[in-house]
Write a protein that binds this DNA or RNA. Structure first.
Lengths: 223, 223
DNA sequence: GTCTATAATAAGATAGAC
DNA sequence: GTCTATCTTATTATAGAC
């Protein structure tokens, strides 16, 4: 007696070998996404390989098949999250704006970017708890981050030349002034909001703080 | 035949029962210090109870005897490190200084304090990775941190009244502006120095950045 | 390439003697 | 209060069939 399954077995055998369960890129990406979620939620030591596997459509065996170890999977996660930020950062085009406009825009962009990318902020914290051991192993990541500093340095130079910015400000220092505030607001939001009883998710608070860091930076640059 | 040990046994029995190995406070403190080192180095999930015990003069059994669980020991560590900062913070006496002096001093104090207390910075990062779950359980910690905000608010008000500061600045926002920079320099030093190739331990760099945050804050407060 | 079952070990916690 | 030995469970990683 023929069953429905039997009739499927009669389908053309020449069809591209795309059986139900073989889809390498998708499987790999599925695992990587699950790993992002788990590592970001639990940290490097806190993350469980089993938990990552459970978040996927596939099995733990495939995780090891594609990534070899928990640590290598973590490095892939790190590179993915650092990579995501680059794409957006490169789209800023600071060089077409007046220096003051450019800096103002960079500050607001940085603020919004961190606010929207909690995952990135968390993975950077996790990596620092582990003394940056893995960023140091990834030449990719350093290369990814050179763009902002370059753009910032160029803008500072233009402003200085035009007499709208003071001289002697280091790009790396200014980058730290901007990033630190935007990063800390997100990285430390749990302890900060609990201890000082502020709702950092409140849109009014957000707007006020965004205006503050913008103005603090602008004033600092005045001649 | 009498041995040396036998003669010791003849010592006065009324002496306070202070046998070689019984010293509760010291043992407890020994464990707590070891726990600070391990948790700060490895994080909450990464820390190993065995490793903590190995750092002590005593055994794992005593750790459970005094602290009941890994988690409760972690909370004690958290409270200890938050407590340490309070003592120094309270010694600032901002109210006896002119408002500008007071803020300048607060900025420099905060900078130096974070620079010197890497342990505190790390435990706060670890705690945020765990969503502040443990600070929320400790009413002690919130109480500890109210002093700075109060002192800062008072100083802002004095400056505003004297016409040396602008109006409308929130104490909590200014606290964040100051803390974020001082904290981030330490918390993110591994990734930051690797990616941007700066030596944040260099005394010249330190002095430059300390002057920057001080001036940025002062300028921001100008009317 | 994928799945189930399992090996090998590490980790938190406790028993019970002294 | 303290120590050694151990229980129990969780965790990374792999074997081997399909």
């Amino acid at each position: 007696m023929k069953t429905v399954d039997d009739s499927l077995a009669d389908a053309p055998v020449e069809a591209p070998r795309k059986t139900r369960k073989h889809n390498p890129e998708k499987t790999r990406d599925d695992i990587l996404q699950a790993a992002v979620a788990e590592f970001v939620a639990q940290g490097l030591s806190g993350a469980r390989v089993d938990a990552i596997a459970e978040r996927t459509q596939t099995s733990k065996r495939m995780l090891y098949y594609y990534f070899n170890s928990k640590e290598q999977l973590y490095i892939q996660v790190l590179e993915k999250l650092y990579g995501d930020i680059r794409t957006t950062e490169s789209s800023l085009d600071l060089d077409v704006l007046a220096p003051e406009e450019a800096i103002g825009r960079l500050v607001e962009f940085t603020f919004d970017h961190h606010d929207r990318n909690v995952d990135f902020v968390r993975i950077v914290c996790i990596e620092n708890i582990h003394n940056g051991a893995n960023v140091k192993q990834s030449p990719t990541i350093r290369a990814l981050s050179q763009h902002v500093l370059q753009a910032l340095g160029d803008t500072l130079q233009r402003g200085e030349r035009d007499g709208v910015f003071r001289a002697g400000v280091q790009a790396v220092d200014l980058h730290m002034l901007i990033s630190s505030f935007c990063f800390y607001r997100v990285s430390n939001r749990h302890t900060f909001s609990e201890i000082f009883q502020v709702d950092l998710e409140d849109e009014a608070v957000k707007a006020r703080q965004k205006a503050m860091i913008r103005e603090a930076v602008m004033r600092y640059l005045l001649p």
